[in-house]
């Protein structure tokens, strides 16, 4: 049986697939890879179906040994040094790791989250139909720690495709612009607040994880004082807490929230949020 033996882990490494949609009414968020495009790309590069489980590696610091047979692997998402037995490997490209080889992901230079796919996927037991770790609800495979052995699934039918590197775009390290759609409670905010959302630059705070990314910028004032009864949110919902600061809610958010949602990050911009680094500047535009 082919396995990945984890020898070292940086800040956080999680098993993720495309999540468990359709269970919010039971209090379970969708979860899943935060950069879904990166997870899909890494899987496609090794011939996996899009929904195969990957390792989502925050920042870097991962060292893993391949045992029980060689495997193809690919890394997408964050951009940084990748080595196999000490030799550099190109990102966004399928490579073959022989039995016993050691794979290392160094500190990301661009973006924040690597998606590491192995051919066959990571075969942890699914919970509610998904192998995703939901960090808030505590569902799915435990966060990966040194010593952990992750089983690699059976080889998929599809062969490793002959793709070149043209699909490779490293996450930007300068200002990122995200497209927004109107939120359900935009009318709770002053005209000045709604204008400021689009006209001023925002900064990613240190409070950024899979639950949400809190931004720093001008205070977004409310038109009326009132209490919102908690209501369901979707990934990308920008809720504004009582102090006027926005938070982009992500895959592991609570399924309902009591703060008004001023806008929603368009689906096409949502993956970029997963790669924002604390301190990075971002701007919003209308979708």
């Amino acid at each position: 049986m082919r396995r990945l033996i984890i020898e070292a882990v940086g800040p956080l490494a999680l098993v993720e697939d495309l999540g468990r949609p359709g269970l919010a009414h039971l209090g379970v968020a969708g979860s899943g890879a935060l950069d879904r495009g990166a997870a899909r790309l890494a899987n496609r590069l090794v011939g996996n179906p899009d929904g195969a489980a990957i390792l989502e590696v925050l920042v870097g610091g991962l060292r893993a040994r391949v045992v029980g047979g060689g495997t193809w692997f690919a890394v997408a998402g964050a951009w940084g040094p990748i080595t196999l037995d000490g030799r550099p490997v190109a990102p966004y490209t399928a490579a073959r790791a022989p039995d016993g080889a050691v794979l290392e992901l160094g500190t990301a230079e661009r973006g924040l989250r690597y998606a590491l796919a192995v051919r066959g996927g990571i075969d942890e037991p699914p919970v509610l139909g998904s192998r995703s770790r939901d960090t808030l609800a505590g569902l799915g495979p435990e966060p990966v720690r040194p010593g952990r052995e992750l089983v690699i699934g059976d080889e998929p039918e599809a062969s490793v495709p002959a793709l070149d590197q043209e699909a490779a775009f490293a996450p930007p390290d300068e200002t990122v612009t995200l497209a927004l759609r109107p939120g359900p409670r935009a009318d709770w905010f002053t005209d000045a607040a709604r204008a400021a959302l689009f006209e001023t630059p925002w900064r990613v705070s240190e409070r950024a994880d899979r639950v949400g990314v809190r931004l720093v910028g001008p205070e977004l004032g409310r038109r009326a004082v009132g209490e919102l009864a908690s209501e369901a949110t979707v990934p990308g919902s920008i809720q504004v807490s009582g102090d006027g600061q926005p938070t982009i809610l992500l895959a592991d958010r609570p399924v309902t929230g009591g703060y008004p949602v001023i806008a929603i990050v368009a689906a096409a911009s949502l993956d970029a949020v997963a790669q924002l680094r604390p301190g990075q500047e971002l701007r919003f535009r209308h979708a």
Binding site: A24, H25, E231, V234, T256
Partner: peptide, 14 residues
């Protein structure tokens, strides 16, 4: 239809 998510005053139709 993916799901209905009721809350105190709203229903999310996903």
């Amino acid at each position: 239809l993916v799901e209905l998510v009721p809350a105190a005053r709203t229903i999310l139709v996903a």
